[in-house]
């Protein structure tokens, strides 16, 4: 996803002279081509995320449109107050792009696991939160965020995510994408879980279930129309995300259901438990510990469907 992001940013920068890229000393090789082509609009702030967020705000207050880039944990937590006070208070036109959503940086250990970023970013007034599901969505989100007013947080995976969507994808901030239509259950995915969710839906389809798959890339603001449709027309809805069970997509949908008097008991949230994994392991290994492998998710959904007497 990060290559798709930088590719799109390069294209935008060609015509948009106010576009600036800041990094907290991360993105070796990934950001090099931007730096080489637009050296005057590229700033490596150094290992100083708080400084970076405030500088981005200052640039935006003087009419620039900065993107700031770092690993998801550093880009959100180290500078949270700067994001709130300097970026959000001022509705500054800053786009925060993070890499390594969820366990993408698996073997790097818990310091690099971004499991609460959606929760803390969506809690900020003025902040838009986008969590693209594949490289196509990542490119679209980059372009859309540039034109979208105010602060935007884009949570990318890392690299090597497969392309799920067609190249001519219709993308709009705040509008979920129906990847596959179905009738029995709705699987709502955000971010880099999309590949897993597509695989889960294939398994469930082969078991005779008709599955709607939604990529809900924008966690804030929510696509209320699409969610109303899901709650009205589906007996069971599952949110699936590589993020803590606390405060992420599942929580956002629960809030939506409760506020709008939908039957929230038909909603089940599949997410990372409230824990820290200290042992080392690959992305897939860590997901398995959390019950987020395709097989585990299929099993869990089947069990729930039986409990609900839906199959």
């Amino acid at each position: 996803m990060r290559n798709a992001f930088i590719q799109k940013l390069m294209e935008l920068a060609e015509h948009e002279r106010d576009l600036i890229l800041l990094t907290g000393d991360l993105g070796f090789k990934v950001l090099d081509k931007f730096r080489d082509k637009y050296p005057k609009r590229f700033f490596n702030i150094g290992v100083a995320e708080a400084n970076m967020a405030s500088i981005a705000a200052g640039l935006a207050l003087e009419g620039k449109r900065p993107f700031m880039y770092s690993i998801a944990t550093f880009a959100t937590m180290r500078c949270y107050e700067q994001i709130r006070n300097d970026i959000c208070f001022h509705k500054a036109n800053v786009k925060i792009v993070s890499v390594g959503g969820g366990y993408s940086y698996g073997p790097n250990g818990p310091s690099h696991h971004a499991l609460t970023d959606i929760a803390i970013m969506r809690a900020l007034p003025e902040m838009t939160v986008i969590s693209p599901g594949d490289p196509i969505e990542a490119a679209c989100a980059t372009q859309a965020a540039y034109h979208y007013p105010g602060p935007v947080y884009i949570r990318l995976g890392r690299s090597n995510e497969p392309v799920i969507h067609p190249k001519d994808l219709k993308f709009e901030v705040g509008k979920g994408i129906i990847v596959q239509e179905g009738e029995d259950i709705a699987l709502i995915s955000t971010g880099n879980m999309l590949e897993t969710v597509v695989s889960v839906s294939k398994s469930l389809s082969s078991l005779g279930l008709s599955v709607r798959v939604v990529s809900l890339h924008t966690v804030k603001p929510l696509d209320e129309q699409l969610l109303k449709d899901c709650f009205t027309n589906f007996p069971a809805i599952f949110t699936i995300e590589e993020h803590s069970i606390i405060g992420g997509l599942g929580s956002a949908l629960l809030e939506f259901a409760v506020q709008n008097d939908f039957n929230h008991s038909k909603l089940k949230c599949i997410a990372v438990p409230d824990h820290t994994i200290h042992e080392t392991g690959s992305h897939d290994y860590l997901k398995k510990i959390c019950g987020l492998s395709p097989e585990q998710i299929v099993e869990r959904i089947q069990k729930t469907m039986k409990e609900l007497h839906l199959c």
Partner: peptide, 20 residues
């Protein structure tokens, strides 16, 4: 132009403005 109150923000924001 700039809201403050939590210390340690103003110089960085000013730096961004100065760059612009």
């Amino acid at each position: 132009k700039v809201s403050t109150g939590s210390l340690g923000h103003g110089l960085s924001v000013g730096l961004g403005m100065a760059l612009a």
